[in-house]
Simulated assay, not measured.
Amino acid sequence: MLDANNRQIAALSLSLLDLTDLGETTTPEAINALCDKAVTPYGTVAAICIWPRFVAQARAKLGPQHPVRIATVVNFPSGDLPVDAVVAETLQAVADGADEIDLVIPYRALIAGDEQAVTDMIAAVRAAAPHPVTLKTILETGELKDKALIRRASDLAIAAGADFIKTSTGKVAVNATLEAADLMLNAIRQQGGKVGFKPAGGVRTVADAQLYLKLAATILDPDWPMPSTFRFGASGLLGDILAVLDGRESAVPNAAY
């Protein structure tokens, strides 16, 4: 993987992509279009990531056994909702057909020194979304900022039962960075490499994706990045992936996520 060419990186990135629409003005029509975009001539993305209110619609469109998984967000984007509200949100999303829950941890509480708030939130959502539902925890690393705090958030999330640790909501000034990725991937490695990693926000090109894949391959293993252990959260990356696979010049849409 470290020496793969652009087309190989693009094909791998496609299989790892959580194709995302978390825009404030998203419509049912946009969700239908997202479901259609998730299936390409080169294969499918790993998942679509959408607001909870659209999960039932997406499930009805994709059907029960579709290879594209449905991910949704809870406690998003603020991370400040009460545990019982987030649990209710999670239970409804799973009932509506979500395969994956992307949970924003109470990162402001963690910044203030309350580690228990993080553990309690993740444990409660894990109980509301047991396996085989995939639980991704969003650390909001651009707001945590401090290296030790990012590492601590990673360790807390893994210990509380997260299946993935994810960098960002894509809704703050600083989202995925290679520095945060390095800290998170090392936490995963030291916990046995069983938990997945998801950079989100700002990954827009195959060249961007390759940097994260190389880092994961170096810290863990060249074969470690696969849909069960690695995802990209992005809305704009698919366009560049398809341009590379088509042999066209990159044409990256201007996307915030």
Rank of each mutant, 00 (worst) to 15 (best):
T20E: 10
T20D: 00
T20C: 06
E24I: 13
E24K: 11
E24D: 15
E24L: 14
T26I: 12
T26R: 03
T27E: 14
P28N: 13
E29S: 11
E29N: 09
I31R: 03
L34V: 00
D36K: 03
T40P: 04
T40I: 02
T40K: 04
Y42R: 02
Y42L: 11
G43S: 06
G43F: 08
T44R: 07
A46V: 05
C49R: 05
C49N: 14
I50S: 03
P52N: 10
P52V: 09
R53Y: 13
F54D: 10
V55G: 00
V55P: 00
Q57T: 09
Q57M: 14
R59H: 11
A60R: 15
A60Q: 15
A60P: 10
K61F: 09
K61G: 01
L62K: 02
G63K: 02
G63N: 02
P64H: 03
P64Q: 01
Q65L: 02
Q65R: 02
H66A: 02
P67D: 08
V68Q: 02
R69W: 07
R69D: 07
A71E: 01
V74P: 00
N75C: 06
N75I: 05
P77V: 06
S78R: 12
S78A: 15
S78F: 14
G79Q: 13
P82G: 07
D84Y: 13
A85P: 02
A85Y: 10
A85W: 09
V86R: 00
V87D: 08
V87N: 06
A88Y: 08
L91A: 15
L91N: 14
Q92G: 07
D96A: 10
D96T: 04
G97K: 04
E100K: 08
I101W: 01
D102S: 10
L103Y: 08
L103E: 08
L103H: 05
I105V: 13
I105P: 01
R108D: 11
R108N: 12
I111Y: 08
I111W: 07
A112R: 15
G113D: 13
G113Q: 14
D114W: 14
D114S: 10
E115V: 09
E115P: 00
